[in-house]
Amino acid sequence: MAEKIAARTEALTENPFHYCPGCAHGIIHRLVAETIEELGVREKTVGVASVGCSVFAYNYFNMDMQQAAHGRAPAVATGIKRVLPDNFVFTYQGDGDLAAIGTAEIVHAAARGENITVIFVNNTTYGMTGGQSAPTTILGQKTTTTPYGRDPHVNGYPMGVSEMLSTLGGVAHVSRVSIYSPAQVNRAKRAIKKAFEVQREKKGFSFVEVLASCPTNWRMTPQDALKWIEEKMLPIYPLGEFKTAAEEGK
């Protein structure tokens, strides 16, 4: 009989992901789910799915979930957390949801220091609606609504959400990570775990931005898409920990 050396985390359901081949959501779902399992808090976690490709997240996370209106996940999470201050509450949001229509909600949840964890998946585009430009689309990047490339005079500049939120008083943890290599995936996992630990310690708002690939809308192979994160996104969105209240060595 073969020895079992790897298994699906019990914090994910057995539903197969609907995501495109090479999409980063599957990896990031797994990192979040594993973290919740490792912390032993699956039965006291309520997740909030947003609008975008991850709208079906409630089909995959094996825990209580609420699905929020476009951009409103931090407000919904606030409502849940204020009712259940001892439970774990997280949102899982994309860049259109969080950085465009939901800008007010994310900024104010952060400024209030809501003791929730936000997983922000930045793939520079509106994936679900067909690859339109997002606030995080980089200059020159072609999307279906910036067919000549993002022009700052017409479309403005890409938004550094981690940089912005880390200036706010209520924020306890902000880091930006990626998944373009196995080493980066491991780092992303550590950052997500740290964010949940900050929530466990009731230190305030925790935020992890994950730079992710969208090969379908970027019109690339999965491998090229990962290379594109490293080459094109990192200069604009540097990785690192912008702020943390987590105790060192934990």
């Binding site: 309520v46 609420q66 209106a69 409103r72 407000a75 009712v83 007010a104 909600e105 900024v107 104010h108």
Partner: peptide, 25 residues
Amino acid sequence: VYLQAESEIAAINMVYGAAGAGVRV
């Protein structure tokens, strides 16, 4: 809990979250 939200949009979505968590709100 009395919470002054950043907008009516946020307020009603907080109500959605709290109602989903099972309290009178």
